[in-house]
C-alpha cells in the first residue's frame, strides 16, 4: 500500500504542477506539452487504480492523437516560435470562480458516489476490481449493458466530425 501511496502523491504533485503550467505558460506549445504531462499522469493514476485498459486508451487517444492535433494546429496556424504571444487576459477572477465551482461539484459527486469506501487491490488476481479493469470486462459492458449510449456517442462524434469537415472544406 505504501508504494501506491507514494506513487500517487508523486504523480499528483507532478500533475498539479503541470496543470498550473498549462494555464500559466505564455507559449501555446509549452502549454500543450504541459498538458501531455497532465494526461500522462492521469494515465498513470488509472494504472494505480488497476484500470490498465483505460490507461492505455488515455495514452493512445489523448496523448497520441488529441495533443498531437493540438500541436499540429498550433504549429500550422500560429507557429510563433520566437515571440511569445500574450495569452493573458483579465478574466482571472472569473476563471478562479469557475475552477472552484467545478472542484466543488466534482468533489461532491465523488464523495456522494463512493464515500469512504476502500479500494482493495491487494486481493487475488481475480478480484472484482482488477477484473473490472480488464479489456474483456469493459468490452462486455460496453457492448451489452451500455450499447445504446455507446452507439449514441458514436453517432454524435460522427456528426461532429462531418460538421467539422464541412466547415473546414474550402472548395
Amino acid at each position: 500500500m505504501i508504494a501506491q501511496n507514494v506513487v500517487f502523491w508523486i504523480l499528483a504533485v507532478a500533475m498539479v504542477l503541470a496543470a498550473i503550467g498549462v494555464v500559466r505558460s505564455n507559449n501555446l506549445v509549452h502549454a500543450a506539452l504541459y498538458l501531455v504531462v497532465v494526461l500522462a499522469g492521469s494515465a498513470a493514476q488509472f494504472i494505480l487504480l488497476a484500470a490498465e485498459f483505460v490507461a492505455w486508451v488515455q495514452v493512445l487517444i489523448y496523448i497520441g492523437a488529441v495533443i498531437i492535433l493540438f500541436l499540429f494546429g498550433i504549429m500550422l496556424t500560429r507557429a510563433p516560435m520566437r515571440e511569445d504571444l500574450s495569452l493573458d487576459n483579465d478574466q482571472r477572477l472569473a476563471g478562479a470562480v469557475v475552477a472552484l465551482f467545478l472542484l466543488g461539484v466534482l468533489s461532491t459527486l465523488l464523495i456522494q458516489a463512493f464515500g469512504d469506501s476502500k479500494i482493495d487491490i491487494t486481493g487475488p488476481q481475480g478480484s472484482e476490481l482488477v477484473n473490472n479493469g480488464r479489456a474483456g470486462t469493459l468490452a462486455e459492458s460496453i457492448f451489452s449493458t451500455y450499447v445504446l449510449p455507446f452507439e449514441l456517442v458514436s453517432i454524435l462524434l460522427l456528426a461532429s466530425l462531418i460538421g467539422a469537415v464541412v466547415l473546414a472544406r474550402r472548395d
Binding site: 490498465e52 485498459f53 492505455w56 486508451v57 495514452v59 493512445l60 497520441g64 492523437a65 498531437i68 479489456a135
Partner: peptide
C-alpha cells in the same frame, strides 16, 4: 500485459510528440 498489443501501439504513438 493483458492488453499488450494495444499498449505497444499506444506507446509507439508517443514518438510523434
Amino acid at each position: 500485459l493483458d492488453v499488450g498489443v494495444f499498449y505497444a501501439l499506444a506507446v509507439s504513438s508517443l514518438s510523434v510528440i
